[in-house]
């Protein structure tokens, strides 16, 4: 009995000491972590507000948020649950808050954050949708801000520039048909002229990823599902 008590006491002391040390490190890293996460968000918002063809900002420079207050001023929709829209069949989710910016040409630009389920968990994407004069949307650019549960070298390649760029400039017709990776659209193996066909594929919602991301279909599929959930959300809330 005495031995059991001694063991329990030693274990308690060890765990308390470890807990105190970890609490100290947590407090020490709390601000840098919050800053790093916020910087990643600011960077992503600025990135998706940039025209990826010309490199020019889609909004005036003073519209780009640099502080939390400036970012909060751009909130379009938010709720306390943290999820603005979910489609569990895809599955794809739109997270709160959603932002709205005024483009240089006067069009509304919606910045949405959402996630799909990748190989190991959530794949979080920030995307910009430009409202067109006919009421439709153009998905302009994406930035994948959290893919930390994806396999390094395979699924974690999702935010590499050559992979990410495949999700840029998807027109309303493609969004309406539903975004899907080329393997899910039965375009595999890719035809020899596939590179010149990429813009045509995008009009049908087909994103070619198998050439730049072999061995990992689940992660780009998660991004495609996220974009589909985002489009459904915009269709419901804007129109």
């Amino acid at each position: 009995m005495a031995n059991h008590v001694k063991i329990a006491l030693i274990l308690t002391v060890v765990m308390v000491v470890i807990g105190v040390i970890l609490a100290g490190v947590y407090l020490m890293t709390y601000t840098p972590i919050a800053k790093a996460d916020l910087n990643a968000k600011f960077k992503a918002i600025k990135f998706v507000l940039t025209d990826q063809t010309t490199g020019q900002l889609l909004v005036n420079q003073d519209q780009i948020p640099e502080t939390m207050a400036e970012l909060n001023a751009k909130i379009w929709k938010s709720n306390s649950s943290g999820v603005l829209y979910s489609n569990t069949k895809l599955p794809g989710y739109v997270l709160s808050p959603a932002y709205i910016f005024k483009g240089k040409n006067g069009s509304n630009i919606y910045i949405l954050t959402g996630y799909g389920i990748g190989f190991g968990g959530r794949v979080v994407t920030v995307a910009s949708f430009i409202q067109q004069k006919n009421g439709g949307f153009l998905e302009s650019a994406i930035d994948v801000i959290d893919y930390s549960t994806e396999t390094p070298g395979l699924g974690a390649k999702i935010n590499d520039p050559d992979v990410r760029s495949r999700f840029f400039d998807i027109p309303n017709s493609g969004l309406k048909d539903g975004v899907k990776v080329n393997k899910d659209a039965d375009i595999f193996p890719l035809p020899s002229n596939y590179e010149s066909e990429i813009p045509t594929y995008k009009k049908e919602g087909i994103v070619v990823t198998s050439d730049v991301m072999t061995g990992a279909t689940i992660t780009p599929r998660a991004v495609a599902n996220t974009l589909n959930a985002m489009y459904e959300f915009l269709e419901r809330e804007v129109k």
Binding site: V25, P32, A36, G120, S148, A156
Partner: peptide, 22 residues
């Protein structure tokens, strides 16, 4: 390991994201 994870999240964000679950 938790300490290393927290420190990497705070100070080497990009590497932390790409190493992920490992």
């Amino acid at each position: 390991v938790t300490m290393v994870n927290l420190l990497m999240h705070g100070y080497t964000y990009n590497l932390w994201v790409s190493l992920g679950i490992y």
